[in-house]
Computed example of a mutant assay.
Amino acid sequence: MNLKKYLPLGIVALLATTLSSCSVIEGIFKTGVWTGVIIVVIILALIIWVIAKVFGGGGKS
């Protein structure tokens, strides 16, 4: 087996898989951040709604 023949191919394959996996990880983290933001907004809205109901902010008498 000729190492000089396969070494550049191995380096290119290594770089290609490393770079694409970084893109995948970046996408996962971006999705995770937006999911977290949406969950926090929903929880805050529920807390505000419950506080408004407890303290009579419903508007009906």
Rank of each mutant, 00 (worst) to 15 (best):
I25S: 06
V37K: 10
N2C: 07
W34M: 13
I47C: 08
G56R: 14
G57W: 11
V24R: 05
V54N: 03
N2R: 13
S21K: 12
G58P: 08
I25G: 01
S21D: 04
V50M: 10
V37N: 03
S61A: 05
S61E: 00
S20T: 03
I43Q: 10
L19Y: 05
V33H: 03
L19H: 05
T31Q: 15
K30P: 03
I43A: 12
S20D: 00
T17K: 11
G56Y: 00
K30C: 04
L14S: 09
L3H: 06
S20E: 00
V54M: 07
P8C: 05
L9H: 05
T18H: 06
W34I: 08
W49C: 11
F29Y: 09
L15A: 12
G56K: 09
I39L: 13
G36F: 00
V50H: 09
G58R: 14
I43M: 11
V12H: 09
V40T: 07
S21P: 03
V33I: 13
G59V: 00
F55V: 02
K30Y: 09
S23P: 01
C22H: 13
P8M: 09
L44A: 14
Y6F: 15
G27S: 09
K30I: 07
S21Q: 15
G59M: 00
V24G: 04
A13G: 08
L14H: 08
L3K: 10
V50P: 02
I43D: 04
G56T: 01
I42F: 14
G27W: 00
A13T: 06
L14C: 11
I38Q: 13
W34Y: 13
G59R: 06
K4E: 03
A52H: 12
L3S: 08
K60E: 00
V54I: 14
A16N: 02
Y6T: 05
K30T: 05
W34A: 06
I25D: 01
L44N: 13
K30R: 15
I39G: 09
T35H: 10
